[in-house]
């Protein structure tokens, strides 16, 4: 029996096929301007790669921003529970999950049994999300993929006070004009994203193991800033974008 998880996020969509013991196939694509149709196409493509058809699927669970509009799923699950399930499957000792995606950031606290007991999500502001980092990259003329490499080994950190994705630009331009190196500015941006994300813990302790997921976890610079701010080892899954879809697939398997 094959179980399918689909995570339709604001920026990207992931599909996972799971056979009850392990991941069989995975796929990632941009959500684009017609997320449901793109999710269906991705699902068909992943099935084809695995040499399967839709009728081979025992159950499909959708999660993410677009889950309620996707017709290809048997049921839906919120991204909090899906991410928690996906992460715990990969790291049974996980106690804290930080997930930063295109437009949202969240922190999930897990108990000894891997059950989500509390969570915080950003509300109405994109500060500290992937979009914020992407926009500062545009101002510095550095692509998101190069950022981690560029800042590796660099130790100087600029103080970035603006958390507004739009107004940070003028602060960064000011720093550039005063001769601050782009690496130093980027480290400042990563540091401020990390600090803002960690503040979401509120009264909850940030306990190890700390797992960092979502597209932003692929940015080594943010991972390093997170480690510097917490003093903890930051664990990033080999493919940090798929934990939501993986959790949804596991939920499909567990019924």
């Amino acid at each position: 029996m094959i179980y399918c998880g689909v995570d339709i996020g604001a920026r990207s969509t992931e599909v996972i096929l799971f056979d009850g013991a392990q991941m069989v196939e995975q796929g990632i694509s941009a959500s684009g301007h017609r997320p449901s149709a793109n999710a269906q196409e991705l699902m068909d493509r992943v099935l084809a790669t695995a040499g399967m058809e839709a009728c081979d699927l025992a159950e499909t669970v959708a999660t993410g921003y677009g889950r309620n509009y996707f017709r290809g799923a048997d049921r839906v699950l919120s991204e909090i529970i899906s991410h928690a399930m996906g992460v715990v499957y990969l790291f049974p000792e996980a106690r804290t999950v930080i997930d930063i995606g295109g437009q949202d950031s969240k922190m999930i606290h897990l108990d000894e049994n891997g059950r989500a007991v509390d969570f915080t999500m950003n509300d109405r502001c994109a500060a500290g999300t992937g979009k914020f980092i992407e926009m500062t990259g545009q101002t510095l003329d550095v692509s998101v993929d190069e950022m981690g490499q560029l800042t590796r080994g660099h130790t100087e950190t600029a103080e970035i006070s603006s958390m507004c994705a739009v107004f940070a630009e003028s602060e960064i331009v000011g720093l550039l004009q005063s001769g601050t190196a782009p690496e130093t500015i980027l480290r400042g941006v990563f540091r401020s994203v990390a600090a803002r994300t960690l503040a979401m813990a509120g009264p909850n302790a940030i306990r190890p193991e700390l797992i960092f997921t979502g597209g932003v976890a692929m940015n080594g610079g943010v991972v390093r800033a997170m480690a510097e701010e917490t003093g903890l080892e930051i664990i990033v899954p080999p493919e940090p974008r798929i934990t939501g879809a993986l959790g949804a697939a596991i939920a499909a398997f567990r019924g």
């Binding site: 921003y65 699950l77 919120s78 991204e79 909090i80 529970i81 007991v117 969570f119 509300d123 109405r124």
Partner: peptide
Amino acid sequence: PSILIVSDYSAEDEQRIGIRLEAFREL
């Protein structure tokens, strides 16, 4: 358990509030 929703009268964050409350319901 409790959840804090800070919002105004506009419709722009209805979806996001829904996402957070749905996760809260599941917890």
